[in-house]
Design a protein around this nucleic acid. Sequence first.
DNA 1: CGGTGGACCTGCTGGC
DNA 2: TGCCAGCAGGTCCACC
Length: 274
Amino acid sequence: MPELPEVETIRRGLAERLPGQIITGVRVRQAQLRHLVDVAALQEHAVGRTITSVERRAKYLFVHLQPDHVLVLHLGMTGRLWVGPPADQDAPHDHLIFSLGPELELRFHDTRRFGMCFLTTTAALLQHPRLHHLGPEPLSEAFSGAYLLERAKGLHKPVKNFVMDATVVVGVGNIYASESLFLAGLRPTRAVGRLRRQHWERLCMAIKEVLQAAIDHHGTSFSDYVDSEGRQGHFQNQLLVYGRDGEPCRRDGHLIKRIVQAGRSSYYCPSCQH
DNA sequence: CGGTGGACCTGCTGGC
DNA sequence: TGCCAGCAGGTCCACC
């Protein structure tokens, strides 16, 4: 479900409400998510601790706890986080419920259970096996055309697969990969070894533009994405190619095509993208 | 070594 | 109506 803009939108919502709250209890209704949730560790290191801040790296959310633990959450494809007054009853797929005193709770809901939840320490966080290999943040200065050019040297995979590789750059999922390639005028099938410096500069700019615009619109909601307050995003109205196969290109009217790459749908305009 | 295909899960949709 | 294939916003690992 969520790519970087959706996770960042959720982070901002959590950051407004969680710092200063104390985790007074944890209920685990289903521990088998992407990995088995360590319930004993949550009881020992999360319960009774005060939340100090909420950060994001790639599509991971970091809930920092006093004094030195970090609750790491990942939403997978269908995960949702909800903050609000305690629910009257549990809904199907409500897997983790963190009580924050008598009047507030944080609820993790995930239909397909590709999400993750684990604890680590501040010191070990960035070296954690799930995080240490991650590439730069796309909205950081470290992510540049020159960087992409360097990383693509000697590789032959399609550019769509390349930009979705989290060791190259994080946060670019299936929607925003297609959108960025459209803005950059590149076909998703182009082999990376054949792209020139100017292509990488254009693609880098396109990725930054698309992700920032999507964050500004609070993400993309199809059927079910909502933020931590239950609100939908609005970027679905701005999509140029994703999910629009058979519809006219907004730039020149040619029909948008859908192809499958690495098992995922890619969308492009055969006239605008080469 | 790099690159691909499938696995992990549930639910919805569209075609027959 | 009922069934079944195909599809869904992510990540990881076995295999060529």
